[in-house]
């Protein structure tokens, strides 16, 4: 379970009042909208809450902590946390993962799709060159990453709009693939007359072995160099902020005075 659902987190959050409480809620919903429950976001939220609680106790104005610009403050702190965990290992990891994706695409196109398949969708996919698939994937990743950064900056206060717009690169990718698929199907030729995906079997074996070995190495190296492991360990094993009703056996929020299912009194409150 997430640290954000733990008693520790919820109890700490309850201590915040006034402008500290409002600002924290604003930052929390911003992080959760764009970064889900990633460990970096969870740790940053925890650090912000700690600073807010201490500043609140010493009656400091919130501007002394945030610098007067909540949006900038929230983004800078989260970026610093992401930057902190970025190592050379992550670069190697992304290359190996990319190699792995290429292998999956090659396997799919070489062994799974039958060249004389009658199903329309399968035929469309079959006519897509390996090059188109791969280029689309790279372009999609690049567009998605930069688009996300841009949307975060613009739609800090309108997260729903930001999240909705974030699906645009995916729609574009689907349209591009569909378009190339249709063209190929109609003409029965490759869009650029490039058949990159025909991989000779020995080369496939080399690629397969290389990817397998890289993945094993990655797992071994990860224990030493993946800085996110320390975060994962930090935020695991938290007590869920729920209690089990002694009368009906249902689970509900630990701080409810009564069970919402049967009305029995919560004796732990």
């Amino acid at each position: 379970m997430s640290y954000l659902d733990s008693i520790e987190y919820k109890e700490s959050k309850k201590q915040l009042v006034g402008e500290y409480k409002d600002t924290f809620h604003q930052i929390e919903s911003f992080y959760l909208a764009y970064d889900g429950k990633k460990y970096e976001a969870i740790l940053t939220l925890s650090l912000i809450m700690d600073s807010f609680l201490e500043a609140q106790a010493s009656k400091k104005p919130i501007e002394k902590i945030t610098g007067g610009n909540t949006k900038k403050y929230a983004i800078e702190l989260l970026n610093a946390e992401y930057d902190r965990h970025q190592t050379k290992y992550d670069f190697i990891k992304s290359i190996v993962m990319y190699l792995f994706i290429i292998l999956i695409v090659i396997t799919y196109k070489t062994f799974i799709i039958h060249p004389y398949a009658t199903d329309t969708l399968t035929q469309k996919m079959n006519h897509l060159t390996f090059g188109i698939c791969e280029c689309s994937l790279i372009i999609y990743t690049l567009i998605y990453t930069s688009f996300k950064k841009f949307l975060i900056q613009i739609f800090y206060d309108k997260k729903w709009l930001g999240k909705a717009l974030l699906s645009l690169p995916y729609i574009c990718l689907m349209l591009i693939l569909n378009r190339f698929g249709r063209v190929s199907l109609e003409d029965n030729t490759s869009p650029f007359n490039i058949e990159w995906f025909t991989i000779p079997f020995p080369l496939f074996i080399v690629l397969f072995t290389l990817t397998a070995v890289s993945l094993i190495f990655l797992l071994i190296l990860g224990k030493k160099y993946d800085k996110r492991i320390e975060l994962r360990e930090e935020f695991e094993h938290y007590q869920l902020a729920e209690v089990t009703c002694l009368t009906c056996g249902n689970e509900y929020d630990y701080d409810y005075p009564k069970c919402p299912y049967c009305g029995s009194v919560n004796e732990s409150v």
Partner: peptide, 21 residues
């Protein structure tokens, strides 16, 4: 973060007296 990456400082995550990390 810069200082930590240059290995000039070490960082450990602990608990604060207020409750959070």
């Amino acid at each position: 973060t810069r200082l930590e990456k240059k290995e000039y400082i070490l960082c450990r995550i602990g608990s604060s007296p207020y409750g959070p990390k």
